[in-house]
Design a protein around this nucleic acid. Structure first.
Lengths: 344, 344
DNA sequence: TCTTATCTTGACAACGTGATCGACAACGTG
DNA sequence: CACGTTGTCGATCACGTTGTCAAGATAAGA
């Protein structure tokens, strides 16, 4: 009469208790490393756990726990396949692991609707905290979650119409620095290619470009914005190259890729200087190697995770912070091409 | 006497029921789209849900549900920051979203121990299924999960000592094809740089190289293996280049990067042909542009997700499958450099 | 020895939800 | 009208776990 078929039911704390000949609470105590259990009972419980291959049901545990914590956090990025997001996710996950937390991820594709949907799903799973790369629109919908005790930290861009911490790169300084760097190599005809200005980072970077050009004393800087992908960036770059700039600054990695293609097409990769925002895999293998404004993704991930876990651990909170992480101009060649006198 | 402070407690189905003046089960019915609820009550419930900003507690729901499903899956990759893993994760997440599932991710760093730990955490959260890029060691520990009804699908490499589906690239054919391709351009002195053979994909690719060289009639192919990162690959490539091969095949993207660096250092980027396994961002912008054996990551992700959800939906299962996804040799220039007569 | 404090233990309630089941109303049929 | 059927609804239980609490055992102090 022995059970022939595996019951296909995971063993519970009750099964463990029965096998060890103790009460369920004692098993619970052992599993949670609570004191006041005789060593003998403890080892009997552990034996039972091992022989049944028992694995505690964390989600059942979390609904009963007083703090309701699930030891998980949610991360919403724009596109997981983008190297920036991928590295960020990796960093966040590393820091979460240190705190024995798991990470739920999702890509919003820059669509506010998908962002909301993901956040809703995460909250429905009762994540302890949220890290969000906000898309357009506003994040006021997050206010409700915050009030219920789910801390939110924005990454890469600040959220709109909601009180929360944010960790962002120093976009403006980065581009400004790039302009100065190019100027030091004699450039004045520096064109800029950027994403649409409704994207926070794009607006900041454009501002940096304008400020830098103003410093340079150039009255009419040449900026093209609204570039959403490599293809449109390539086309825009072709157009811009026709006006014979001596240098280009690209607002993100997709645009940089498009611009390099365009320069290749025009045969000016060695003549027109180029500085791109965001580092790229193989950037140092291009000829000329790519000079970039590199974001410190490790620092961003670390600061964001730290802020989130601080809010989680210390219930009180304190004032909301905006952390600005420095970027680093990394000269590799393409940004150090001198003007050949064709500049004005 | 109104509550001044927000209770900081998420509203429950009970609160909704009270506000709507109905029983909890009626609320449950509405939330789960069950029949037998008068339209009038339904709308009253929905109103209450909206005004309380109620959000169903999915994890509480899942412990009560008969099927115990949590609508979440776990994904273990080697390194989330690696483009291959990042794109795979994105694909998996897209397919999971279609089925209204969430994705928990983690990086094993190729350490069997971390892999087990992640799987344990995922199972403790009662994920409905697992997608695993297995590291070394064996995956027999997963047998227990499988028996409890958690389907597992291996990705990129098959698991060892456990019955489960697997979706892998046609590594051997890929490298074999690369050898043929190079041979068509006159090469016979083709060297190979690979990861350590204990990694399944590395072994397969090396086998492809050997088979291809045998076809070519080359008795003593030159292969260097055990390369774990770009730096060691670069050093190995420098050594190999000293033996004056006319072409190189690199076993993965890290090795390719190292090799290109080495060729740059030796000034032979235009003379020695190169084919790399795995596509790279900007591969088409290098000079010469990089010829690669590209894995169809979208197909891998889709097939793996499909297999997993099939097992989830149809309880029966059926025989375990090994899906082999074709790879595509993508000529861009570096693999089409002809021999200049220096070959034997 | 008794008293008091501390340790050890398990019965029971409770978390937020879905499942069961019985109560009741509305309907159709004879 | 009596009857069965179907639709509607909520009280109650159950899921696997932890919190509460009281009872018994043991140790410490007088």
């Amino acid at each position: 009469m022995a059970a022939y078929q595996e019951p296909l039911r995971a063993p519970t704390i009750k099964d463990v208790a029965a096998l060890a000949g103790v009460g369920v609470k004692t098993v619970s105590r052992v599993l949670n490393d609570e004191p006041h259990v005789r060593p003998e009972l403890r080892s009997r419980v552990l034996e039972a756990v091992a022989s049944l291959k028992y694995r505690r049901n964390t989600i059942a545990s979390s609904i009963r726990r007083l703090d309701q914590r699930t030891a998980s956090i949610g991360l919403v990025v724009e596109d997981l396949a983008n190297p920036f997001a991928a590295q960020l996710t990796r960093m966040v996950q590393d820091h979460a692991r240190e705190r024995r937390h798991l990470v739920l991820v999702g890509s919003s594709d820059g669509a506010p609707e998908q962002e909301r949907e993901l956040v809703a799903e995460f909250c429905s799973r009762r994540v302890d905290g949220l890290l969000v790369v906000p898309s357009g629109g506003d994040q006021s919908y997050l206010e409700a979650e915050r009030e219920r005790g789910t801390p939110v930290v924005f990454v890469d861009r600040p959220g709109r119409r909601v009180k929360a911490d944010a960790v962002v790169s120093d976009n403006e300084q980065g581009v400004r620095q790039a302009v100065r760097h190019l100027a030091e190599h004699g450039h004045r005809r520096i064109a800029y290619l950027g994403d649409r200005q409704s994207v926070y980072t794009a607006a900041q970077r454009l501002a940096g470009y304008r400020a830098g050009m103003k410093e340079l004393g150039v009255a009419e800087p040449q900026a093209r914005t609204g570039l959403r992908d490599s293809a449109s960036a390539q086309q825009a770059a072709l157009d811009v190259l026709d006006t014979e700039p001596t240098a280009l600054i690209c607002g993100n990695n997709l645009i940089t890729a498009g611009a390099v293609h365009a320069m290749q097409q025009r045969g000016v990769r060695d003549r027109v200087a180029l500085v791109g925002f965001d580092d790229l895999e193989l950037a140092d293998l291009l000829r000329p190697a790519l000079t970039v404004i590199a974001q410190d993704i490790a620092a961003i991930g670390r600061r964001a995770a730290d802020l989130l876990f601080q809010r989680l651990e210390r219930r009180d909170g304190g004032p909301y912070q905006r952390v600005i992480v420095p970027v680093a101009l990394t000269p590799r060649g393409s940004g150090e091409i001198p003007t050949d006198g064709q500049g004005r």
